[in-house]
């Protein structure tokens, strides 16, 4: 079944189409949710709520080529995850950062296997992890992150800086020394 056929079926509220959509994308969306909320149960809740929302609003979805459906679903999951985090975590902390400090590079981290990178990211505190996920994995700008989390842009920058610094620290602690 092609993506356009799948979209058409789901727009007609076909149970077969909805199950097909779930079977096709639920695993990857579960992984996305898990990167934000850490626990299995919460990630399952977010996936369920995201699909409920997707089934309800898919009539208003306008496909823009292959892959647009997955991108749309992914955005729903990210928004649901952020909503979940906002209810449990205070992102609105004012943190100042000395602009003279050098920006930590992730060269050491990017050479790690994907599973190790993920494990390190999951060990970050919730605020750092969220900003890192949004900026590095989702590709959001600092302005978008600030809007999404309801924080200032400088706070978003500070969080990302600290996330990178923390990752580097963890990498050194665990004995990974790439490029040296």
């Amino acid at each position: 079944m092609t993506e356009s056929e799948l979209i058409h079926l789901c727009q007609q509220a076909s149970p077969r189409g909805q199950q097909e959509l779930f079977d096709r994308w639920a695993d990857s969306l579960y992984r996305v949710a898990l990167r934000y909320v850490k626990t299995d149960v919460d990630a399952e809740d977010i996936v369920m709520m995201s699909f409920t929302k997707a089934f309800r609003h898919i009539t208003s979805f306008r496909p823009q080529g292959e892959g647009s459906l997955h991108a749309w679903l992914r955005k729903i999951v990210v928004n649901e995850s952020l909503g979940w985090l906002r209810r449990r975590h205070n992102f609105n902390m004012v943190e100042s950062l000395d602009d003279t400090l050098p920006v930590p590079d992730l060269n050491d981290v990017c050479h790690l296997p994907a599973e190790d990178i993920l494990r390190l990211v999951m060990e970050l505190p919730a605020g750092y992890r969220t900003v890192f996920n949004l900026h590095v994995v989702e590709g959001y700008s600092h302005q978008e992150i600030a809007e999404q989390l309801g924080i200032s842009e400088s706070t978003a920058r500070t969080q990302l800086f600290k996330a990178k610094a923390q990752l580097k620290k963890m990498l050194i602690r665990e004995g990974f020394q790439y490029g040296t």
Partner: peptide, 21 residues
């Protein structure tokens, strides 16, 4: 480096995972 991390993590998302699907 960030792009590389993004690519790796997104590739990881397409891997099968065990969960209460």
């Amino acid at each position: 480096s960030e792009q590389l991390i993004q690519h790796k993590l997104r590739q990881l998302e397409s891997q099968p995972v065990k969960w209460n699907k």
